[in-house]
């Protein structure tokens, strides 16, 4: 039944009973695509099949052919899924084919969504195997949006305590590779604070437990900031954690202050080791704009005139020296508090 790849369906006796359907009839299309013969042939036969509604094993072959030529052909995917259900092919076999296609066409929505449909259909599919497959795919494309969202969906869908447990190690592995990988930071937030079907792993428990997780996350984030301070992903995570737990920004200022001074200003102070507040690395380029911004936000949140005045000073530094491309925004922040000063 399988036909050699180079034989057109039009020349294949096994398909002689299908009437191919040309794409445009009675229309001289504007802005058309100049198709290859192979693609035109396959999609003409696909349209013919859709018209008759045939759902048979050879339709799986045809849709696979189209998908390999154009993995974004969502109608071929859709029809394939309906056919799979109709002919009752073992979904495990389909998943194996998808292992190949997912790696080949990593950047298309459909390869990942099709996997999701398969897993939703059949609980027998092994989620652990799936997580390993995703991990392998992410090695090849460390910021692939679809792959990361698929992993997050899978974790929340299966919602198995054992699966959640391994995720922190996985994130740390990814961040060890590249601590600027924002997808990995987002995944950490997802796992720690949002996952687990409510409350997040480790965060759903007692108050002590919540505080332990908060401390762990702050320590972890500060550590990575100290290695490479000019990393917006780490600062955004820090802010996200503080916002989520309603922790005042001011509590972190002893740490953040270390990142707004110049290297020369902190000579001699480095021999005091404070594990809570790891100092910037040797190579750090200071002052760090994210630290300036954070400090200003912390001052503003004090809610008094003194804090607002200190915040304005920092925003001026950002607007005029350190982050001039965003001058308008920093001036907007200044206007926002100046209305309040002395009021």
């Amino acid at each position: 039944m399988t036909s050699p790849a180079d034989v057109l369906y039009a020349d294949n006796p096994a398909w002689a009973d299908v009437t191919p359907l040309p794409q445009y009839e009675g229309v001289n299309p504007l802005a058309p695509i100049l198709y290859t013969e192979e693609y035109k042939d396959a999609t003409d036969y696909f349209r013919g099949i859709v018209k008759t509604g045939e759902k048979s094993p050879r339709v799986l072959e045809l849709t696979e052919k189209i998908i390999r030529l154009n993995p974004a052909h969502y109608s071929a995917w859709q029809y394939r899924f309906e056919t799979l259900k109709a002919v009752k092919v073992p979904l495990e076999d389909e998943l194996k084919l998808m292992d190949e296609l997912a790696v080949k066409y990593l950047k298309t929505y459909q390869v990942w969504h099709h996997r999701r449909l398969l897993l939703t259909e059949s609980y027998n599919l092994e989620p652990k195997r799936e997580l390993e497959f995703i991990a392998k795919s992410l090695k090849a494309d460390t910021k692939n949006y679809h792959t990361w969202s698929y992993r997050q969906w899978l974790l929340a869908f299966v919602n198995d305590g054992e699966l959640w447990v391994g995720e922190l190690d996985f994130v740390e592995e990814m961040l060890n590779e590249d601590l600027r990988n924002n997808s990995a930071w987002h995944h950490r937030f997802f796992v720690v604070w949002l996952g687990g079907g409510g409350g997040g792993m480790g965060v759903g428990g007692t108050r002590e437990e919540k505080e332990r997780v908060l401390r762990r996350e702050l320590t972890f984030t500060k550590q990575l900031i100290s290695l490479a301070p000019n990393n917006p992903s780490a600062w955004n995570y820090l802010r996200g954690v503080l916002d989520r737990t309603e922790t005042p920004y001011g509590l972190i200022l002893p740490f953040v202050r270390l990142y707004i001074v110049n290297l020369s200003d902190r000579a001699g102070s480095t021999d005091i080791v404070d594990v809570e507040n790891p100092p910037p690395s040797e190579g750090a380029q200071l002052p760090c704009t994210a630290a300036l911004e954070f400090t200003a936000d912390a001052y503003e949140r004090q809610g008094d005139d003194e804090g607002r005045k200190k915040a304005v000073e920092l925003w001026k530094v950002l607007a005029n020296e350190q982050d001039t491309i965003r001058k308008r925004y920093w001036e907007f922040r200044i206007r926002g508090v100046e209305k309040k000063v002395g009021a």
Partner: peptide, 25 residues
């Protein structure tokens, strides 16, 4: 050129997005 002569064959990857090719143009 795209509108009158058509899009070259590498746009087959956007065969399921023909309305987009039209709209963008």
């Amino acid at each position: 050129r795209n509108m009158v002569q058509g899009f070259p064959a590498r746009y087959i990857s956007q065969d399921a997005s023909q309305p987009w090719l039209m709209f963008w143009t």
